[in-house]
Amino acid sequence: MTAPGFEEFLARGRAAAEELQREEIHVWMPGPDVFDRVTGTTTPGPPAADYYTGPARVKPIAAASGEEVEAGEREVSLHTFEISVPWATTVTERLLPGAVVDVLDSPDARMVGLRLWVTGSEFNSTASAWRIRAEDRS
């Protein structure tokens, strides 16, 4: 049983977290690629799931340095981000690694167009926001 003042305290924390959510994002799961036998090319298929579009806070995790890995015969640097969306956000399916977060709008114009790949998400009944871990693979 929680103390009567705890729910009020939690509501204030969630409201404060939402004030920091200044980016607009779209979270979706890519569908399988489609191979065109005539042209011999592969194109991305339609999204398999559309999870969320709305406000969020997108911030790099300072403690995580860019890890360099090889992908597709080229070096890429992985940078970890934490994305916070309103705690009350309703998502009908569990967000799985491999989902994509696109930053659609931000007061920081350098973030617009940023594509992040989900590595995990956190659930907690006493959290101030729903948090998603993702990485920039550029």
Rank of each mutant, 00 (worst) to 15 (best):
E7W: 14
I61F: 08
T80V: 09
G113M: 06
W130L: 14
P47Y: 00
R115Y: 02
A11S: 15
H26K: 09
R12A: 14
M111P: 00
V76T: 03
V58K: 09
E18F: 10
P55W: 02
R94N: 09
S138R: 15
W117N: 09
A134T: 09
A62V: 04
D50T: 00
F81S: 07
R74M: 06
V112C: 03
S77E: 12
L114F: 03
G45D: 09
G45V: 10
E23M: 13
D50H: 13
T43L: 06
P60I: 09
T41N: 11
H26S: 11
G5T: 10
V100W: 01
R12M: 15
D33W: 08
R131I: 13
F81T: 08
A99L: 07
T2N: 13
T90Y: 01
D36V: 03
P55K: 14
L104P: 01
D33N: 14
P4M: 08
R115M: 04
D108C: 04
D50S: 13
Y51D: 03
P47V: 03
F35L: 10
E70D: 08
A49Q: 08
R115S: 12
W28K: 01
D136I: 04
T92H: 06
T42I: 15
D33Y: 06
V101P: 13
T42P: 01
G98N: 05
V27M: 06
S128F: 11
T119M: 05
D136A: 12
E24K: 14
R12I: 10
D105V: 01
L114S: 09
V58D: 06
S121L: 01
A48T: 08
P44L: 10
D108Q: 11
E75F: 01
R37C: 00
L114K: 05
E68S: 10
R115K: 10
L78V: 05
E18N: 07
P32L: 07
V118E: 06
T90M: 03
P55R: 15
E19P: 00
D108R: 12
S125V: 08
T126R: 12
R74Q: 13
W28P: 05
I83D: 00
I83M: 03
R37Q: 11
D136W: 14
R74C: 01
A11R: 15
E67F: 00
R137G: 02
T2Q: 14
T53I: 14
A64Y: 11
T39H: 07
P32Y: 06
F9C: 04
R94P: 01
A129Q: 03
E75N: 03
D36N: 13
E75W: 03
A109T: 11
D102V: 03
A88W: 02
R14S: 06
R14A: 07
L10D: 06
E24D: 07
T90F: 00
A56N: 13
E82Q: 10
S121K: 00
R131K: 14
R12Q: 15
S128L: 13
R14F: 08
R22M: 08
D108G: 02
A134F: 06
W130E: 02
S77K: 12
D50W: 03
W87Y: 14
E73L: 12
G98R: 04
S125Y: 05
M29Y: 05
S121M: 00
T80R: 12
A88E: 12
N124R: 11
R22N: 15
T89W: 06
R137M: 04
L20S: 12
L104A: 02
V91S: 02
V91D: 04
D105G: 13
W28S: 11
V69L: 08
